[in-house]
Computed example of a mutant assay.
Amino acid sequence: MTGGQHVLEVEGLKAGYGGVEVLRGIDLAVGPGEIVAVLGSNGVGKTTLNKVLSGVLPARAGQITFEGRRLDGVDAAAIVEAGLIQVPEGRKIFPNLDIQENLELGSYRRARKNRARNLERVYETFPRLRERRTQAAGTLSGGEQQMLAIGRGMMAEPRLLILDEPSLGLSPLLVEEMFTLIRRLNADGMPIMLVEQNVVQSLEIASRAYIVENGLVTMSGNAAEIAADPELRRAYLGL
């Protein structure tokens, strides 16, 4: 695996908090145009991985290569400017600002000159947001807030979009809608790293997947093959 073939490549990544090592040598890669699922139950290190990739938490060892450029040790603002964009778990919208203001903040560091064009693209993707663009973001439903968070990420013209638990807290119907949307964004050519606890639906839309347990990748490969793996079915699906 060379950085040239991949949008994102992570090798031997270690990180943690204080004396606790959470990531114990993670290896993963996302190629052009792929949806790659990073799956695991709560507390296995998925959020820590995202914090390191976004520059919020320093790596203790290993390297991160994004479009051929080393990003470990680079600050969060420069990572956004490079086009590695995250939609964080819990949405992290600004509740007192309206929808349009939240979206415009997505282009604060990157793609500012294309703001009007990208805003139109987001509104085409999410007609509900256009209808309510002057509404305070905090008054939206959970599903609408998730749309807003993804729309805000799209405003930065991501070279890679990392979605952290996008289905969390949504009704089954909205979860279905969310996964359909992720597939549609990817069909337009956007590589996506999908970090999820929802193993079944993530594997349905991903091309490849990594299963993380206790800070290490314990299984990786073609998503359909992983979905059929008896060990995974036993561990995650109770089958």
Score class of each variant (00 low, 15 high):
Ser220His: 13
Arg121Lys: 14
Arg159Cys: 04
Leu203Asn: 01
Gln86Ser: 10
Leu239Glu: 15
Val30Thr: 10
Pro32Ser: 12
Lys113Trp: 12
Arg91Trp: 02
Leu194Lys: 02
Ala235His: 05
Ile192Pro: 01
Leu105Trp: 00
Arg234His: 14
Val7Lys: 03
Asn42Val: 06
Gly238Lys: 00
Val52Ile: 04
Arg152Ile: 07
Glu131Phe: 04
Val10Ser: 14
Ala15Cys: 07
Gly31Trp: 07
Val74Thr: 10
Pro88Met: 09
Leu168Lys: 06
Lys14Pro: 04
Gly25Pro: 00
Met155Thr: 08
Leu181Val: 03
Gly40Asp: 05
Asp27Met: 11
Val175Tyr: 00
Gln135Lys: 05
Arg133Phe: 14
Pro95Ile: 04
Val30Pro: 09
Met147Gln: 09
Gly12His: 10
Asn102Ser: 01
Val200Lys: 14
Leu57Phe: 00
Leu216Tyr: 10
Arg234Tyr: 09
Leu160Ile: 05
Ile226Phe: 02
Thr134Lys: 15
Arg117Gln: 14
Leu194Gln: 00
Val10Gln: 05
Leu185Trp: 00
Leu161Gln: 09
Leu140Arg: 08
Gly90Lys: 13
Pro88Cys: 07
Asp188Lys: 15
Arg24Tyr: 09
Ile99Lys: 03
Asn186Lys: 13
Val175Pro: 02
Lys46Trp: 06
Gln86Trp: 01
Ile211Asn: 02
Thr134Gly: 12
Ala136Lys: 13
Pro88Asp: 01
Glu204Trp: 03
Glu104Trp: 03
Thr65Ala: 13
Ala82His: 04
Asp98Asn: 12
Arg183Trp: 06
Ile205Cys: 01
Glu104Ala: 14
Leu237Ala: 10
Lys113Leu: 15
Val10Phe: 02
Val74Leu: 07
Ser167Pro: 03
Arg130Gly: 11
Gly68Ile: 05
Met193Leu: 12
Leu160Cys: 04
Glu67Asp: 10
Ala149Arg: 09
Leu239Ala: 15
Arg70Leu: 12
Met178Val: 10
Leu148Asn: 05
Asp72Gly: 11
Asn222Pro: 11
Thr65Pro: 06
Tyr123Pro: 09
Pro230Asn: 12
Phe179Asn: 02
Met190Pro: 06
Gly16Ala: 11
Glu9Gly: 14
Leu39Trp: 12
Leu57Arg: 09
Gly68Phe: 03
Val175Ile: 14
Ala61Met: 00
Gly221Leu: 00
Leu194Val: 02
Ile182Asp: 00
Leu140Glu: 04
Ile35Pro: 01
Arg24His: 11
Glu231Thr: 12
Ile162Glu: 03
Arg115Trp: 03
Asp72Pro: 04
Ile162Arg: 02
Asn114Pro: 11
Arg152His: 07
Ile85Asp: 01
Asp72Ala: 10
Leu57Ser: 00
Glu165Phe: 05
Asn50Pro: 12
Val122Thr: 07
Leu103Cys: 05
Leu13Ala: 11
Leu174Thr: 08
Asn198Met: 06
Leu239Asn: 13
Ile162Lys: 04
Thr125Pro: 03
Arg121Tyr: 14
Met155Glu: 02
Ala187Lys: 15
Met193His: 14
Ile226Thr: 04
Arg70Asn: 11
Arg121Ala: 15
Arg233Phe: 05
Phe66Asp: 01
Glu196Met: 11
Ala227Ile: 09
Leu160Ala: 06
Ala59Asp: 03
Thr47Val: 03
Leu53Lys: 04
Asn222Ser: 13
Ala15Gly: 08
Gly55Ala: 04
Ser107Gln: 05
Ile85Pro: 11
Asp75Tyr: 13
Ala76Phe: 04
Met1Ala: 10
Gln145Leu: 07
Val175Asn: 03
Asp229Met: 03
Thr125Leu: 07
Asp164Cys: 11
Lys113Gly: 12
